[in-house]
Design a protein around this nucleic acid. Structure first.
Length: 785
RNA sequence: GCCGAAGUGGCGGAAUUGGCAGACGCGGCAGACUCAAAAUCUGCUGGGGGGCAACCCUCGUGCCGGUUCGAGUCCGGCCUUCGGCACCA
């Protein structure tokens, strides 16, 4: 660490999956280069590392190989730590944190209690994948594409369980604010779409069902202008009104439909490709605006959790509703007139703007105006209210698993759900639980764990046996890194004040939505608890791409396309492998990892080695300007590339510089000062990329340890400037000549040169010059007729 | 299906705002060095056509269309591949 302003450089912590994968190198080696660069730019850099240690794979290993999840995880950590060290990264190892340590997860529990106190948690029924044969909850990953259990092949169904939620929706609007963050546009767009804010109206439709006249059917719509066009209603199969309104003659069919809907995945249900399905409940509701009776259907394209779980069917002006109406022969009523409509049947839904028709008092209004006019009317009549709905759902944090953070709550027959007092933390995960699938949540079968005294009444009670989603661990690990041994709270507040938020975060694009959204939410909550300052946890974000096997497929042992970093490091060295990963292409694109090209990087590092240690002949003062120009041009290019994580072009520039210097040396004596400056600059720029080789060369050339503690070379723009340019001359946009010219050539002179070129004149013959376009320093385009 | 990206020589890729398509590297071919090989170094290397030659012409950035003096880059419509889709992390 050098002196200077703090700079927190964070790379996503690795999951303890086993051996270190090339993907880890691809994520971390460039991050290390960037962190080293920041340090050379004079910042006090914190670059920590840790392990994301809870999760399903540890339990799978336990079940398949009979190894305890704790042993599996910590053995993996030991191996990965050693492999990480071979990378030569400047990781701050004394600050390592491991999420499966009780010293870590006790604070997950502490945060959970704080969220509970703040009213940000609640319990509700939520569906979980359920294998009726194994009698166990399955993760999505454990359900095969055809909907079968990966263990036994039985068809997986859904089962409702009482589970814990965090109210992330309470922060939905704030999470839409990305100002003051330097994040990739695509990540912000994905988060914006994930949150999916829509403004609309919640409208009540009276129920025409004997016995439930006191209830009403509420629908959310952004299209109030189409309410007169409602010809049916669609409820989610799980909608609570369904059992109440279904007529006896429809019940069997409705129940069968609900059962089949429970087997569908959400992606299947929302697919616009497949044919619409649904059944009629036999019940009707009343369209308060038109006074008409509207049949109520259920269909799986309505989702219980979105809006009110009910969709008003306007087939004339919504594509899905149109398809549904076609499928079931429901009427289509046009209420927004297509421009050349003859009053006949529509062939497809009309979703463009237009004038309202068949809308009583609202006829003739442009539909955009009709939207607010009808919304206002509904509010005035007390039939509806303007509201905002989000696609974002609250965060289901419960997992029915062993290898995670126990939720610090107690269920008391007398007092209900009771939080544990802070002093009783941590709730330790018992080492001797039966984590093999038995039909019950693993912790539920552990008598010693489950039975507890109620903190309120002291009577016998049961512990909560769900554990937390592992995304809880990754919400705040970067703050724990600051003081991993701190035991007075989750982190040392003094250090937090100085070091967070994170200056630069790097990690895989696969985390663009979930982890990065949960972590932002978590930060905002603990900010409101007064624990941290600032509105965002990660000021700058860079997502690297995913590295694939040489065959372009995702690397996996079963495909046999795994590139093991250890093997490569043994063969060509850590620096070569690091540089190669940075050289293969833009960091945010990833892609297939062939190993043919590695020789090029190896040769470059060898050439640089020989250049630095080889003898140059001095005394050639005439070479000074050219060498200095090369040096400062390269410094400028490499600096710009480093700022934007463009490693591939930075390395290309350094290769060009190495080649240029080699040529200059071989051409004859060189200017001593210019040469020394060039070699020194080259070493400094190589240092973040190839830390071992740069250090070795730095020392062997008698320079003071360490190259990594030096300042980044300062580029002189005057020396970097090109004196000559290639002026491109086009006729009608086709290149006809290239003329060397002074960089500051005047427009008139450039045009004269262009018109004087014989190659150009050939193409002007017999034509009239219409105009001449001049782009300073670049080109002249002569437009002819 | 929905949301977000990407598609350029034999291969990885370059082209900062619309202005020389193919930087840098791999591979290939030819040559130097060597008894020989390896290593290293030098030159050439998108397709087609023309020229003894220096060179010149022409086509070319997934596909179809458009805007522009000029499009890999912008717009509209497709195709393919990749990431995410809430219990993999």
């Amino acid at each position: 660490r050098g002196p200077g302003e703090p700079f927190y450089f964070l790379t996503m912590l690795p999951y303890t999956s086993g051996d270190l994968h090339v993907g880890h190198w691809y994520a971390m080696a460039p991050s290390d280069a960037a962190a080293r660069y920041r340090r050379m730019r004079g910042r006090l850099v914190f670059f920590p590392i840790g392990f994301d240690a809870f999760g399903l794979p540890a339990e799978n290993a336990a079940i398949k190989q009979g190894i305890h999840p704790h042993k599996w995880t910590y053995d993996n950590i030991d191996r990965m730590r050693g492999q990480l060290k071979s990378m030569g990264a400047m990781f701050d190892w004394p600050h390592e944190a491991i999420s499966a340590d009780p010293e870590y997860y006790r604070w997950n529990q502490w945060f959970f209690l704080k969220f509970y106190e703040k009213g940000l948690t609640y319990r509700a029924l939520a569906p979980a994948n359920w294998c009726p044969s194994c009698q166990t909850v399955l993760a999505n990953e454990q359900v095969l594409p055809d909907g079968a259990c990966e263990r036994c092949g039985t068809a997986v169904t859904h089962r409702d369980l009482e589970q814990w939620f965090f109210k992330i929706t309470a922060y939905a609007d704030e999470l839409l604010d990305f100002s003051h963050m330097e994040w990739p546009d695509r990540v912000m767009t994905m988060q914006r779409n994930w949150i999916g804010r829509s403004e609309g109206v919640e409208v009540a439709f009276g129920l025409d069902v004997p016995g439930v006249e006191d209830k009403e059917l509420r629908v959310f719509t952004t299209r109030t202008d189409t309410i007169y066009g409602v010809t049916f209603m669609v409820l989610a199969p799980e909608h609570p009104l369904v059992p109440l309104i279904t007529t006896p003659d429809r019940r069997a069919e409705v129940d069968a439909y609900i059962a089949q809907a429970r087997r569908q995945t959400e992606i299947e249900r929302l697919s616009t490709e497949r044919d619409k399905t649904g059944v009629f409940t036999g019940a009707y509701c009343r369209n308060l605006l038109s006074g008409e009776a509207v049949p109520i259907w259920i269909a799986d394209y309505a989702l219980a959790w979105y809006g009110t779980g009910a969709v008003m069917g306007v087939p004339a002006h919504d594509e899905r509703d149109f398809e549904f109406a076609q499928q079931f022969g429901l009427p289509v009523r046009v209420v927004i007139s297509p421009p050349d409509w003859d009053g006949g049947e529509l062939r497809e839904a009309f979703v463009e703007p237009g004038a309202m028709v068949n809308c009583g008092q609202f006829d003739g209004l442009p539909n955009e105006e009709g939207k607010s006019a009808i919304a206002g009317y509904l509010e005035q009549q007390g039939w509806g209210r303007r509201t905002v709905t989000y696609r974002l759902r609250d965060w289901l944090i419960s997992r029915q698993r062993y290898w995670g953070t126990p939720i610090p709550m107690v269920h008391c027959p007398k007092d209900g759900v009771v939080p544990l007092p802070e002093e009783q933390l941590p709730v330790l995960l018992p080492q001797d639980a039966e984590f093999k699938p038995t039909g019950e949540s693993p912790l539920a079968a552990h008598e010693g764990f489950v039975n507890v005294r109620c903190p309120r009444c002291g009577g016998p009670a049961r512990r909560e046996t769900d554990t937390m989603d592992t995304f809880m661990d990754s919400n705040w690990y970067f703050i724990r890194y600051l003081s991993p041994d701190y035991d007075q709270g989750p982190f040392d507040p003094e250090l937090a004040r100085r070091w967070v938020p994170v200056s630069q975060y790097t990690g895989g694009a696969e985390h663009a939505v979930m982890h990065l959204l949960y972590a932002r939410f978590f930060w905002k909550v603990i900010r409101d608890l007064g624990l941290v300052h600032g509105d965002e946890p990660f000021l700058r974000l860079f997502n690297q791409g995913q590295i694939l096997g040489p065959d372009g497929q995702r690397m996996s042992k079963s495909r046999g396309n795994v590139v093991a970093p250890d093997v490569q490091v043994d063969r060509c060295g850590a620096d070569t492998f690091r540089c190669y990963l940075m050289f293969i292409g833009p960091w945010d694109e990833g892609g297939p990892l062939g190993l043919q090209g590695i020789a090029g990087v190896e040769r470059w590092l060898n050439r640089a080695w020989n250049l630095v240690l080889g003898q140059a002949g001095f005394g050639g003062e005439g070479s000074a300007r050219a060498i200095r120009h090369l040096t400062h041009k390269t410094v400028r290019r490499v600096t710009e590339d480093f700022e934007e994580f463009r490693w591939n072009t930075a390395i290309a520039a350094l290769m060009e510089m190495t080649n240029g210097l080699t040529q200059a040396r071989d051409a004859g004596p060189v200017d001593r000062d210019a040469w020394e400056e060039a070699v020194q600059s080259l070493l400094l720029m190589m240092a973040p990329l190839a830390p071992h080789i740069a250090e070795e060369l730095w020392e062997r050339t008698g320079r003071p340890y360490s190259v990594h503690a030096q300042a980044w070379p300062a580029g002189d723009p005057e020396l970097a400037r090109e004196e000559e340019i290639t002026l491109v001359v086009q006729v009608n946009g086709k290149v006809r000549d290239r003329i060397q010219a002074a960089a500051d050539i005047a427009e008139g002179e450039a045009k004269e040169l262009a018109l004087a070129s014989p190659l150009v004149r050939r193409h002007l013959e017999g034509h009239e010059i219409a105009r001449i376009i001049y782009v300073p320093g670049k080109l002249v385009n002569i437009v002819v007729r």
